[in-house]
């Protein structure tokens, strides 16, 4: 399971790195980035899903 951010869609709304700072960080422009390769386990999956469903731009994708 992997999470990723589509950088074309992300507008730096900043919800992901506030909700799930263990999974997401921000770059120098304030856009969201995934920490590491984005691999999720059962525990982090639900947190990633929560971030996904709060991203106003629908920029977060989860492959299961």
């Amino acid at each position: 399971m992997r999470v990723s951010i589509d950088t074309e869609i992300c507008q730096g709304q900043g919800r992901c790195f506030s909700i799930a700072p263990s999974i997401f960080d921000f770059d120098e422009l304030g856009n969201g980035v995934v920490i590491g390769d984005g691999t999720l386990n059962e525990e982090t999956l639900s947190l990633a899903r929560l971030a996904q469903s709060n991203c106003p731009e629908h920029a977060i994708f989860i492959e299961e």
């Binding site: 507008q11 730096g12 709304q13 900043g14 304030g30 929560l50 709060n54 991203c55 106003p56 731009e57």
Partner: peptide, 23 residues
């Protein structure tokens, strides 16, 4: 409210530049 995909700072390319400061 846990699911809150609100648009207070706008949507798309004009998303509020000041949103981090405003929050």
């Amino acid at each position: 409210r846990a699911l809150n995909r609100h648009a207070a700072f706008g949507l798309g390319i004009h998303r509020c530049v000041g949103s981090n400061l405003a929050r």
